[in-house]
């Protein structure tokens, strides 16, 4: 019978013994040595019945197939774009994943997307042996033409979205802004006016700084209310 040594949402660091016993599953950011399960990262423990995992507080997670990311075009080739999606690997966006019909002889890709443009994209292939491939064909994907894009720590993305999108709903409903969160730690914000935009950015910075302290959603609600009163919107 296995034993779990940590509570839920407890701070752990690499090398901390989380659990013992072969019947307990080693989840994300943990590793098993003999019968013991250790944390491999600085983060918060998560205990779920027969599984222990750790939610990291720092670092960039690897891209996953199907992730929605916000990328920055950093290179234009003959048939593809090179896209910075933060993290260790540069992504490739092929022209046929962006345009309906495309002829490399007559078309110049710069006409469609140029260096410095932001895009909302989906990762279609990634297996670590090659750089991730993107597509911008699909609902809600494509070039970003309005609003602002801000960078946050990728490890804070799950908190900004919240369990069952609770946090994201608070942010959008209370401010009326349209917010798209990229899994890679970029956020696209479209607001009816500048004041609200300011509030959203401030609220996101607050989430980023206090991600590990419980009771975050309630605090953010109060914070947005106060800010709204202060800025009179």
């Amino acid at each position: 019978m296995g034993k779990i040594y940590v509570a839920n949402r407890q701070l752990v660091k690499p090398g901390d013994l989380l659990a013992e016993g072969s019947d307990i599953k080693a989840g994300d950011y943990t590793y098993r040595e003999d019968d013991k399960i250790y944390s491999s990262i600085l983060g918060l423990s998560e205990v779920d019945n027969k599984q222990v995992s750790v939610i990291p507080l720092e670092g960039t997670p690897l891209p996953k197939e199907g992730d929605i990311v916000i990328g920055l075009i950093i290179g234009v080739g003959i048939t593809n774009w090179v896209v910075d999606i933060k993290g260790p690997y540069k992504a490739i966006l092929n022209a046929n994943e962006a345009l309906e019909s495309f002829n490399p002889i007559t078309d110049d890709l710069r006409k469609y997307l140029d260096i410095g443009d932001y895009i909302v994209a989906k990762i279609i292939v990634f297996d670590r042996t090659r750089n991730p491939m993107l597509t911008i064909k699909g609902k809600g994907l494509g070039k970003i033409t309005e609003g602002i894009v801000i960078d946050v720590k990728p490890s804070r993305v799950p908190r900004i979205i919240g369990k069952k999108k609770t946090m994201l709903n608070v942010l959008t409903e209370m401010t009326g802004c349209n917010i798209i969160v990229g899994q890679n730690g970029r956020i696209w914000i479209r607001c009816p006016d500048k004041k609200l935009e300011k509030i959203v950015v401030k609220a996101i910075r607050k989430i980023e700084a206090e991600a590990h302290i419980p009771g975050l959603t309630e605090r953010i609600k109060k914070f947005i209310e106060e800010e709204k009163r202060r800025l009179e919107v």
Binding site: K13, P14, G15, Y29, Y31, E33, Y38, S40, I41, L42, P56, L57, E58, G59, T60, S155
Partner: peptide
């Protein structure tokens, strides 16, 4: 560890 890189132990 501060960089969030997975490691066995400090």
């Amino acid at each position: 560890a501060d960089a969030g890189i997975p490691m066995r132990d400090l």
